[in-house]
Simulated scan of single mutants.
Amino acid sequence: MASDSYSSDDETLLSQALPTTKVPNNFDPSVPPASAEEYLQHVVWEARQCQDVVTVDVDRQKLKKPGTLKEVKVTAPHGYAPSPETQQELLTSFSNLRTHIANLRSSKQIPPSPVRFPSLKNREEWCKLCFGNSFQLALLKQANSDAAQPPLVEGQQPLLSIVLNIKQRGLRNLLEWHAQWLEVLGFSEAQGCWFYALLACLEKPLTPESCSQIRHIARICAKLRSSLESSDHPHLPHLNVIICIVARYFNQEDLADG
């Protein structure tokens, strides 16, 4: 039976993976190994330099005051949030669409996509598919570029024949990328339509990554909503739809409007 104590010369607790000779008394760890045997001797020597038990001094005063990360909810300005009745109507419409999508999937009658999809990793090509080259033109304008701008090319609307042919992994990628594009250039009606379509096709239960992503999107939308100049802004209804769906349908109630 092996002893509970362990010394540098007692290696019976660990099974030997490779045969090697003992480390010689004149072993010099500063000399690079010239053979496989010398390399193993270096490994054994380095292992023996490690302490059997390592402890760390803990400041117990800090343990008494644990820090917490709290997400700050951006409250809608007065008159900007949808009424409870409007939220219920939005949820009913969204739920009906989800039911229709589920029926199409179960019937195996999904129409073929009218467009060819880029690689799941090709963010730039997916951006062109969703927005045409308007995103590129906006970036050039934002950078005050003097380069000649190409003519505007329109993007694809998120038709069911398109989004239903995107695998769940692709949907999650698109949500992540759309959130990044939203942070860079703000909100557009076209992006609101894509968000709605992607959320409608996102299967439950959500992965932790997807849940975190849609929460992030809802918080960005809430922040953008609070910066709108008036309650008559054309983006307000679209932002409210996304916030309502994430909060109410996907059970992120802490983000919901009262």
Rank of each mutant, 00 (worst) to 15 (best):
R225N: 04
A148C: 04
S7Y: 09
N165E: 04
A222W: 01
D28Y: 12
R123E: 13
H238T: 11
E11R: 13
G79P: 02
S212R: 14
Q156L: 05
P84W: 04
H42W: 06
S161P: 02
P82T: 03
A147M: 10
S83Q: 02
P19G: 07
I217V: 14
L182W: 09
L13D: 12
K22G: 08
E189V: 10
K64C: 11
Q157N: 01
Q136P: 00
R172L: 10
W181F: 15
N165M: 03
G192Q: 09
P158W: 05
Q136G: 00
A34N: 02
S83K: 06
I162F: 02
R169S: 11
A179C: 12
D254N: 11
A47S: 04
Q88M: 13
I162W: 03
W177Y: 10
R48Y: 02
E89R: 13
F135Q: 08
Q142P: 00
I245V: 15
S30N: 09
L90I: 15
S106K: 15
L63V: 06
N25H: 08
K73C: 03
E89V: 07
F94G: 09
H235G: 02
Y6V: 06
V58R: 10
K108D: 03
Q16G: 14
G258S: 14
L239K: 04
N251S: 15
S7Q: 05
V184G: 00
P111G: 03
Y80I: 07
L164R: 05
R215T: 05
L139A: 14
R248P: 01
Q142D: 09
E124M: 11
V153T: 06
E85Q: 12
K62A: 13
H178C: 09
F117Q: 08
H235W: 15
V241A: 06
T75A: 08
Q191P: 01
D52G: 13
P66G: 08
L137M: 13
F250I: 10
L164P: 04
W194Q: 01
P114H: 03
N251G: 07
K70W: 00
T99L: 15
S107W: 07
A34M: 01
S119M: 05
L137P: 08
A143G: 00
Q61R: 15
I217M: 10
P33I: 11
P118Y: 12
T207Q: 09
L206F: 01
R60M: 04
V246A: 10
E37A: 10
C221H: 09
S212G: 04
K65L: 12
L224D: 02
Q61S: 15
L202K: 06
L104S: 12
L255P: 07
S106C: 14
S188R: 13
N165Y: 07
N25I: 04
A197G: 07
F27I: 04
S35C: 08
R215S: 11
A47V: 02
R219T: 05
S5D: 03
S95C: 11
A222L: 10
L198A: 11
T86C: 02
L239T: 03
P118C: 13
I214P: 02
C127W: 00
Q142F: 06
H233P: 05
P84F: 05
F187I: 10
A2V: 08
S210Q: 02
